[in-house]
Design a protein around this nucleic acid. Structure first.
Lengths: 202, 202
DNA sequence: GTCTATATAAAGATAGAC
DNA sequence: GTCTATCTTTATATAGAC
């Protein structure tokens, strides 16, 4: 009776945990935080409700993990684009495009991350991640000002507006109705973003 | 034993109901929807929990009433400013200023109306009212374009960005920290809004 | 380790006394 | 009409069998 787990045991446990997080993420994306009960997650993962507590001490801990994983991916992707090639204005344009496109492609998850009603612990995480999104946007705006491509402005407010605008378009189910393709929406959104940051019209 | 309520009885009942709505609004502004229990509202109004159900059939109905009253006031005020005197750009500037100032002056309530976690029924109302805010902004942007003061743009997206930006500034508790007075914040916010709508720099 | 069954807690809603 | 006390529901979390 070993007092230490074998490597294969550890792998199995981690895999089960990963599976649980993945299933919980799907459930949240589909029905939102409020309707995501421990039972629903367990059903989705094919285990009993009680077994969830083998991997997470509480529902809140699981929810926070789900949020951190998903939001962390978005921050990472956005950060890479904004920190990539080209001048600050080009990068900002691509960043908005990528951020919005990913959100539109997985609307349920994006809504859950940006806006959906959630318990307090998740709300706190959301606040933190919104700050990170905004910090990324604010930094590229700062660079744009330094390069003389953007006029003097409060970059934090511009960044907040960009984050808020994308969220707002997502929140409204009528945001992409008949007559507007995703591409048209993205064109209008990036145009607004460039105006918002004060980039000269093309 | 009259089968009809006397006028004074009706007045008393309506007054009690008004008082209940007012107290509930205060509670929501202070602690948010999630922490607003029927008991807390009843305590605040100085009545028993059970008595709440003399005036509203359910907690959700009370919450919706609270939301409608408060959000309706904001829509009305914003509508009057945007529909007032001056050219469209001037009205937009004043509208942003008034909307944001009122929100900053009653931050708890503004947060509850714009962003705070809430039950489904309130969430649906919020969606509806955000659409109304946006429709108001979109209309003045449309007028600005028609008057040749603003460049061609998707006014709905500009309107969404403005609503989102104000909400975003409010959501962040660090939005108005040391070094930024409310007036400075408003100056930066209106400047962003004018850029966002494409108004020429002053 | 995972299941079933159950304990527990919180909040909304109701019944009946006054 | 309002209060007190209680019922009911719902979902989290736990205990003990296998």
């Amino acid at each position: 009776m070993p007092y230490r787990k074998t490597p294969s045991e550890i792998r199995r446990l981690e895999a089960a945990r990963e599976h649980l997080v993945a299933c919980a993420t799907s459930v949240v994306a589909e029905v939102g935080w409020a309707q995501t009960s421990v039972t629903a997650v367990a059903d989705s993962a094919g285990i009993a409700a009680g077994s969830v507590y083998q991997h997470f001490p509480s529902k809140a801990a699981l929810a926070v993990e789900v949020f951190r994983r998903a939001a962390g991916r978005e921050v990472e992707v956005l950060g890479e684009v904004l920190d990539g090639e080209g001048d600050p204005v080009e990068r900002l344009t691509r960043g908005i495009e990528v951020f919005a496109r990913r959100a539109l492609e997985n609307r349920g998850l994006a809504y859950a991350l940006l806006a959906a009603p959630a318990e307090a612990a998740v709300g706190a995480e959301r606040l933190e991640f919104r700050r990170r999104y905004r910090a990324l946007f604010a930094e590229v705006v700062r660079q744009g000002m330094a390069a003389g491509l953007l006029p003097a402005q409060n970059g934090e407010i511009t960044a907040a507006a960009l984050t808020g605008a994308i969220g707002e378009v997502l929140v409204d189910p009528l945001g992409t109705p008949s007559g507007h393709t995703t591409d048209e929406l993205l064109t209008d959104l990036t145009a607004m973003a460039l105006r918002c940051a004060g980039a000269p019209a093309v």
